[in-house]
Amino acid sequence: MDQHTPIVELRNIKTRFGAQRIHQNLNLQVFQGERLALVGASGCGKSVLLSAIALLTNPEAGEIRLFDQQVRNLDTEALKLMRTRMGMMFQQGALFTSLSLLENIMLPIRELQKLPESLIKELGMLKLQLVGLPSTAAHKFPQELSGGMLKRAAVARALALDPNLLLLDEPTAGLDPVSANAFDELLLELHATLDLTLILVTHDLDSLWRITDQVAFLGRKRVLCKAPMDELIQQEQPHIQRYFANTRATQAMNRNQAGEVL
């Protein structure tokens, strides 16, 4: 695929829940290697949009192109293959509580790749190591993990099939500042070493400054602007100005400019 061709392209997306319109003629392009955040006020449809990119929900209208393929034209097998090129980390982890951490990671590998069980287990352990979890965590159940470990476990499962695109819904939500910073560092490391494209939904202002190179601001049912953070905060559009005109946003910007880490 040409480097100038977006790996995610949304054209005139329309989404509604009942009578409520969420997106109206929304357009967005994401290119290989970008670290993009979807931001905006609560209720603007960030997670809904992420779910549509992950092919978990279908918009009412519009066109979704992934890896330069029109999703609407794909048959069942092609869609199945497309989904293996994406990994999704859900906000609450969405791990199966009846399975150990290692079993959670092995599950998609076992279902979608015909490999010996010993190799599947070895791959699962490699994913654990990749996200910085100790081998002793392999046989723990999700309810036995700390919040930070649970987030890393969810990423390990999302990476099980070696995706090109990693989607994350509120990855640092509920973490203390030290754990959130460590998780940001993990995402930067994974992005660099695995040649990933990242798309995340986040309200974490420190993460916006720290790990993104592009931010898409959602408002008025569409993408109002896509730009790096230092350009986005200079925008004169009222929705964007209001979002960043507060003490928390200013403090996060100042920490970034000073090179401080929480």
Rank of each mutant, 00 (worst) to 15 (best):
M1G: 11
Q3G: 04
Q3K: 07
I7M: 08
V8R: 00
R11C: 00
N12E: 10
I13R: 00
T15M: 15
R16G: 11
R16F: 08
A19E: 12
Q24E: 13
V30H: 00
F31Q: 03
Q32C: 05
A37Y: 00
L38Q: 03
L38M: 04
G40I: 04
G40F: 03
G43W: 09
K46G: 08
S47T: 13
A52Q: 08
A52I: 13
N58S: 14
I64G: 01
I64S: 01
D68V: 06
R72P: 10
L74C: 08
E77P: 14
A78N: 09
L81H: 10
R83G: 04
M86L: 12
M86H: 06
M88P: 08
M89T: 13
F90R: 01
Q91F: 02
G93E: 13
S98R: 03
I105Q: 02
L107Y: 03
I109D: 07
R110A: 14
L112S: 03
L112K: 08
Q113Y: 02
K114W: 13
P116C: 08
S118Q: 12
S118W: 08
L123P: 06
L133T: 01
T136D: 11
K140H: 14
K140P: 10
K140M: 11
P142Q: 02
L145A: 07
A154H: 12
A158G: 09
L165P: 05
T172D: 06
N181H: 10
D184Q: 07
D184G: 12
L190E: 13
A192E: 14
A192C: 11
L196C: 10
I199L: 14
I199Q: 01
D204G: 06
D204P: 04
L205F: 14
L205Q: 01
D213A: 06
D213I: 04
D213P: 01
D213N: 07
V215S: 00
A216H: 05
V223W: 05
C225M: 15
A227T: 05
A227N: 02
A227I: 07
P228F: 09
M229K: 03
E231A: 14
I233T: 08
Q234Y: 09
Q237Y: 05
Q237D: 13
Q241C: 09
Q241E: 13
A245I: 09
A245K: 09
T250M: 11
Q251M: 15
A252P: 08
M253W: 12
M253N: 04
N254G: 04
R255G: 05
N256K: 15
A258L: 11
A258G: 06
G259I: 07
E260L: 15
V261A: 13
V261K: 12
